[in-house]
């Protein structure tokens, strides 16, 4: 059971590689930002698996805080990309 959980954790961490590939190689700037956005969501999954593995609940708090901060960052960058001010 723990072995399977370990394998799942490694797969989930390895899935950050496609996002990094997209961030580094993306032909345009929006492509890179898609990579950053998806990266932020994947980290929540990693937090969840680690919380199950170590039986500690506070790691889920890190996940919640991470998803909100990542949301604000993506929103700001997207507004900047569209050439608009933040209050429109």
């Amino acid at each position: 059971m723990t072995g399977l959980l370990n394998i799942l954790l490694y797969i989930q961490i390895a899935l950050c590689a496609p996002c990094l590939y997209r961030i580094i190689r993306g032909p345009t700037i929006p492509d890179r930002m898609v990579g950053i956005d998806i990266f932020g969501i994947l980290v929540v999954g990693i937090c969840g698996i680690i919380a199950v593995q170590t039986e500690r609940a506070f790691i889920l708090d890190i996940g919640i805080a991470w998803v909100i901060l990542s949301f604000i960052g993506t929103l700001t960058l997207a507004k900047y990309l569209g050439g608009k001010k933040l209050n429109e």
Binding site: D37, V67, L75, A78, L81, K84
Partner: peptide, 26 residues
């Protein structure tokens, strides 16, 4: 609690990104 937060933030961020990408000229 994390599940609805994840749904709303992910979809709204996707709308903002796709709109920004179009206005950027992708």
């Amino acid at each position: 609690v994390a599940i609805p937060i994840l749904f709303f933030t992910a979809t709204v961020a996707a709308h903002a990104l796709v709109r920004g990408a179009y206005h950027f000229g992708a």
